[in-house]
């Protein structure tokens, strides 16, 4: 009896199917690695030589077949900042409500379902929604009420950023929720027992601990929203703009004009590839623009990681 067990243990298994599946999952697991490598390699190889100081700092010239992409970088950053400014307070507030105030009632479930569904809506639908709701409904009505002619009721950076803000809302809500949930219940109890109100507890104990997570959410939202093309297509992006969307406040303080249209990196890549007068000639610009866009996104992700590490260290928690 005993011997048969031992001999069973030592007998080689039929390893064919075992090895086959093992190999298969290994190959599949490497696919993302190959994909990211190929993407980066092609872009860096073709784009690195294009990205020079003047490429970054000059406007397009010669029917956008020469020159730089400065207006696109400017527009992309301005639009993204505006988007975060709109989305972050909304998203954080929603998450605070969901985690700290809402019970498990019908309202909670409705909001929960809305957030999940919002995350699944195709981005072109957001673009059409932005045009219909922000530009035509909100904007036109504002113009009528305020008698501003055609100021709000046309595509501009404000509406593009608002549309993107709604697109990235689920990202911010979900990561903020996770950050809030990870704050130990015992800290809330300690704060309440010291005579803090609920809001004081949220403001002084919960949010400071969730800061890293909230910030990570904001930056994830940026890297999601910054590269989107479809939502801004009808709501504010321009094919070409001879000037920067800048206005002089009180005549002398230059600031971004949210009521102007703007040029954008992702849209620039799209039009260079499909709508250019000479698509072949603009190929280097396409690679260069793509490299700039990807670098910006990577940079932001890096900043997110560094921020998270900084906040954890400040709180005396273990790093990463």
């Amino acid at each position: 009896m005993r011997e048969s067990i031992v001999s069973n243990l030592t007998v080689k298994h039929d390893n064919l199917s075992e090895n086959f599946m093992n190999g298969l999952v290994r190959i599949f697991a490497v696919v993302p690695l190959i994909a990211i490598f190929l993407i980066l390699w092609i872009i860096v190889k073709n784009g690195a030589g294009v990205v020079t100081g003047s490429f970054l700092l000059l406007a397009p010239t010669d029917g956008m077949t020469q020159g730089g992409i400065f207006p696109c970088i400017f527009g992309a950053i301005a639009k993204t900042v505006l988007m975060v400014v709109m989305a972050l307070p909304l998203g954080v507030a929603a998450a605070i409500y969901l985690v700290e105030y809402a019970g498990d009632g019908i309202v909670f479930r409705l909001i929960r379902a809305a957030v999940n569904n919002l995350a699944g809506v195709p981005s072109i639908v957001f673009g059409l929604f932005g045009l219909g709701f922000f530009v035509l409904f909100v904007g036109r009505n504002l113009d009528q009420v305020l008698k501003t002619g055609l100021l709000f009721g046309q595509p501009c950076m404000l509406w593009a950023a608002a549309t993107l803000a709604i697109l990235v809302l689920p990202v911010i809500i979900v990561s903020t929720e996770e950050a809030l949930i990870s704050v130990p219940q015992s800290h809330r109890a300690a704060s309440l027992a010291l005579g803090a109100t609920k809001w004081q507890t949220i403001w002084r104990v919960v949010i400071p601990q969730a800061r890293g997570g909230i910030l990570t959410g904001a930056i994830l939202a940026v890297s999601r929203g910054a590269g989107e093309t479809a939502p801004i297509l009808f709501t504010g992006v321009a094919y070409f703009l001879p000037h920067l969307p800048v206005v002089n406040l009180f005549g002398f303080i230059p600031m971004v004009n949210p009521f102007d249209q703007f040029m954008d990196l992702s849209y620039h890549i799209y039009i260079m590839a499909t709508q250019s007068v000479d698509a072949e000639k603009t190929l280097p610009i396409q690679y260069g623009t793509t490299l700039v866009l990807i670098s910006l996104t990577f940079l932001l992700n890096l900043v997110a990681v560094l921020f998270r590490m900084y906040f954890r260290k400040k709180q005396g928690l273990v790093t990463i």
Binding site: P184, S186, H187, A189, A190, S191, A193, L194, V205, P208, Q209, Q315, G316, L317
Partner: peptide, 12 residues
């Protein structure tokens, strides 16, 4: 005032 079972200082 109250002191809890597990020490729960804030991460401050």
């Amino acid at each position: 005032g109250m002191v809890f079972q597990k020490s729960n200082p804030f991460p401050k």
